[in-house]
């Protein structure tokens, strides 16, 4: 899953669609993100490559919409509604995910188990 800057990223991704849950005035997704190009990638406990500045799922709340949609802790978010998430700041990612006028977010996520599964299947 490592990549060379400037080169297209090849990754096995899973499509995940999360319907936001309305809590009072807020729309919630039920997970936490960490990472971003403005963050210290070395402190990211989920990344394999400690220079990876991507956005990672650091927490998934129990019974939340994200969990229901199949999002897992440690997933790396590649895209949100078609927007790239591999080269964004933490705040940009947050904004993409928490658009008030969007009830549904479509994520492309990748995780180690996926890659492993694919590799095993190909072998």
């Amino acid at each position: 899953m490592s990549f060379i800057p400037g080169q297209p990223v090849t990754a096995v991704v899973q499509r995940i669609e999360i319907c936001k849950l309305r809590q009072c005035d807020n729309l919630i997704l039920g997970f936490s993100i960490g990472g971003g190009i403005d963050q210290d990638p070395g402190q990211n406990p989920f990344s394999e490559d400690k220079t990876d500045k991507g956005i990672y799922v650091t927490r998934v709340s129990k019974g939340g919409p994200a969990e229901a949609a199949g999002l897992m802790i440690g997933d790396k978010i590649m895209q949100v509604n078609g927007w790239d998430m591999t080269m964004v700041t933490h705040d940009q990612a947050r904004k993409r995910l928490t658009k008030k006028n969007e009830d549904v977010v479509r994520l492309l996520v990748t995780r180690k188990s996926l890659e492993d599964a694919v590799r095993n299947a190909m072998v």
Partner: peptide, 11 residues
């Protein structure tokens, strides 16, 4: 060297 912290944001 640790110029950045690592934040977590709940969404």
């Amino acid at each position: 060297a640790h110029t950045h912290s690592f934040f977590e944001t709940h969404v």
